[in-house]
């Protein structure tokens, strides 16, 4: 391994897993009150986003110019935007998109990371060193700089944002999985299985992955939070999800308007709180998962 410092840090963050999911996982997770609250919130937001557009009497897209820029009222709890659309409805619809983008991006990064991590750890040798060199390379470029350059080149769209965030964040999962795979592969029973000529594909699926997925789950959970923040930051720079499609990022972007920031807080309060609380909840969940999954952290 090239960077002992980095290795050390990865160990300092207490995500060293030895066992499969330890017994009593749920009990311990639920005892982490903040994590539990976070999970409840995330579930509520998720369900709300899925259901609200059907419940809301308003169309999140169709303009209604006579109703433009209304202040909050019973009819429109968060007021209306410049085109007269109900902001609360759009917050929920935006939640669908923001969450979907973050999940899709993380699915890509976790998938790619797992694949590369398994390949590096299981194969070892030159495969390992090439993959790890590439990992180092990607980790050395400030992610957001590359993100900006890429999005401005490919053009901002949901698809591109997902792809680019996904393709630029696989390094963490890859390192984690590789570490796990290495520790599993050295177990005597795996060595025995390899020696007895068991097919490598099945070996990986049967024995290696089940041991490696736990840290990936934790990393992915936190990855979702980071992807959300990345999407918001891209939207701020005008490189994120493009209107009319609402996302929390581009709705929060309205607060860039000084007048909106100062005089019309209801416009940004919804998406702002949604992002902050969701990210916070996910972070808590990650923390809880970590505690629940890692026996060492139970002190």
């Amino acid at each position: 391994m090239s960077s002992p410092a980095l290795e050390r840090v990865v160990q300092v963050t207490p995500v060293t897993f030895v066992e499969r999911r330890p017994p009593g996982f749920w009990r311990r997770f639920l005892r982490h009150r903040l994590a539990f609250a976070g999970m409840v919130f995330v579930v509520l937001v998720g369900v709300g986003s899925l259901v609200a557009p059907w419940i809301s009497p308003y169309d999140p897209y169709a303009m209604q110019l006579p109703d433009a820029r209304l202040r909050p009222s019973w009819d429109h709890p968060l007021g209306t935007d410049n085109l007269g659309r109900d902001i609360l409805t759009r917050v929920f619809v935006g939640g669908r998109i923001s969450i979907a983008v973050a999940l899709a991006a993380v699915a890509i990064s976790s998938g790619l990371g797992t694949l590369l991590g398994v390949a590096a750890g299981y194969r070892g040798g030159w495969v390992d060193s090439i993959i790890m060199r590439i990992t180092d390379m990607f980790m050395s470029i400030p992610m957001f700089v590359l993100l900006i350059v890429l999005v401005s080149m490919l053009g901002p769209s949901a698809k591109n944002v997902i792809l680019i965030i996904g393709l630029l964040t696989w390094m963490g999962p890859a390192r984690l999985v590789r570490g796990q795979v290495l520790s599993v592969v050295n177990e005597p029973y795996i060595e025995a299985a390899i020696a007895s000529g068991a097919p490598p594909g099945r070996l990986v699926i049967r024995h290696v992955l089940p041991n490696a997925y736990v840290p990936v789950v934790v990393a992915s959970t936190l990855g979702v939070a980071n992807a959300m923040l990345s999407e918001a930051a891209l939207s701020f720079l005008g490189l994120g999800i493009q209107p009319p499609t609402p996302s929390w990022g581009n709705m929060l972007n309205a607060a860039q308007q000084l007048q909106t920031l100062v005089q019309e807080p209801w416009v940004w309060l919804g998406p702002g709180a949604a992002i902050a609380l969701t990210v916070l909840s996910i972070n808590f969940m990650g923390d809880g998962l970590r505690d629940a999954l890692d026996p060492r952290a139970r002190r």
């Binding site: 701020f236 929060l252 920031l261 992002i275 902050a276 609380l277 990210v279 972070n283 808590f284």
Partner: peptide, 22 residues
């Protein structure tokens, strides 16, 4: 600590400008 990690930096910046500058 968790809160700072959860609020987008640009948004925090805009709030800072509004509160401490404007």
């Amino acid at each position: 600590a968790f809160s700072w990690l959860s609020v987008p930096g640009f948004f925090l910046g805009m709030l800072m400008i509004y509160i401490f500058a404007v």
